[in-house]
């Protein structure tokens, strides 16, 4: 009824009048097209209005050599490495750190080294940067959320620093602490985790040649959202073990508390080795999405570093020690 016209202008031959169903279907298709066009217009306008609100900072180029133990897999684009981050100190959305981490002040910066060591000291970051030759390590990074990246880090082995600090026989574990500064880290203004963020490693894990203290990626200083100015990289463990923006390294006798384990002990253990056979209680760890790829790939035991690190856990029940 509502389609009835009282007068049709020029007479249309009946063969050119579409039957009702095709007429309705065509109208729906056109409405759909109009919605998408409108959405596209809204989207392009929004992008123009809000894009590039935070200009990328100029990061210092680093002098380094190519290091061993890297992978030759395709590297995740810098844009993705710097815009998709879990760094809850700057917000819980993965896009947040890239937007808000510019408030972090990375100079002056000191790292307090203390506990069971012969040479406790407060190291200035610029002193620390000159202590050891920097090298590039291209590592896979596997997040506990079942996505992964390949990142060319620049840094030095944690073992070099440990040896320099002369641990005593009582030093069995390493306890790391992230900066606690709610004025610089807006995410710390809400009690999402028990701030400051803390992580830990067993001494042999810390001394392993794969374990890196990173100060840069893609040849330049670390962007703030990636854990500037100093972060840990332990490539065979889930990403949250690789603590960011470190201000303290304490050598201890007993296994130290770790932030995600405190938050949800049944979901995140102390070891947190990448293990496709032990699922997170809420999702499978058997497969992962490599950022930039469409089809999920199989997750490898110890994130593909089993040959180097599996022996560290010989005889241990990896289901119980997840």
């Amino acid at each position: 009824m509502r389609h009835r016209r009282t007068s049709i202008g020029p007479t249309i031959p009946s063969r050119e009048i579409s039957p009702e169903p095709s007429y309705v279907a065509r109208r729906q298709v056109m409405t759909g097209a109009a919605v998408f066009a409108a959405a596209g217009a809204v989207e392009l306008g929004a992008r123009r209005a809000f894009s590039a609100t935070v200009p990328a900072p100029d990061l210092a180029a680093l002098t380094y050599r190519k290091g061993p133990l890297g992978t030759d897999e395709a590297q995740t684009p810098l844009k993705d490495v710097t815009s998709y981050n879990n760094f809850y100190e700057f917000g819980t959305d993965k896009g947040d750190p890239g937007q808000t981490a510019h408030t972090l002040k990375v100079r002056p910066w000191t790292v307090t080294c203390e506990g069971e060591i012969g040479k406790p000291q407060v190291l200035d970051i610029d002193t620390l940067l000159k202590l050891f030759p920097l090298e590039e390590r291209v590592y896979r990074l596997r997040c506990v959320e079942a996505w992964s990246m390949v990142i060319p880090w620049v840094g030095f082995p944690l073992a070099s620093l440990i040896k320099k600090l002369e641990p005593t026989s009582k030093a069995k574990f390493l306890a790391f602490t992230t900066l606690h500064a709610p004025d610089q880290m807006p995410g710390q203004r809400r009690p999402v985790l028990d701030w400051p963020y803390v992580e830990g490693l067993r001494m042999d894990e810390g001394l392993h040649p794969l374990t890196l203290l990173a100060v840069g990626l893609y040849g330049k200083s670390l962007p703030n959202q990636c854990g500037a100015p100093l972060r840990l990289v332990v490539p065979w463990k889930y990403g949250y073990k690789s603590i960011k923006s470190i201000v303290k390294l304490r050598f201890v006798e007993k296994q130290p508390p770790t932030s995600w384990n405190l938050s949800a002990p049944n979901e995140y253990g102390f070891y947190s080795n990448v293990n496709p056979d032990v699922d997170h209680p809420r999702w499978s760890q058997a497969r992962e999405r490599r950022i930039g790829e469409f089809i999920r790939r199989k997750t490898l035991p110890f994130n593909g570093y089993a040959d180097q690190v599996a022996s560290l856990y010989a005889g241990m029940d990896l289901r119980a020690n997840y």
Binding site: G32, V35, F36, A38, A39, G40, V42, E43
Partner: peptide, 11 residues
């Protein structure tokens, strides 16, 4: 209500 779907597909 269809516009968000359009935006998601477009993006």
């Amino acid at each position: 209500a269809m516009i968000p779907a359009g935006v998601i597909v477009f993006r």
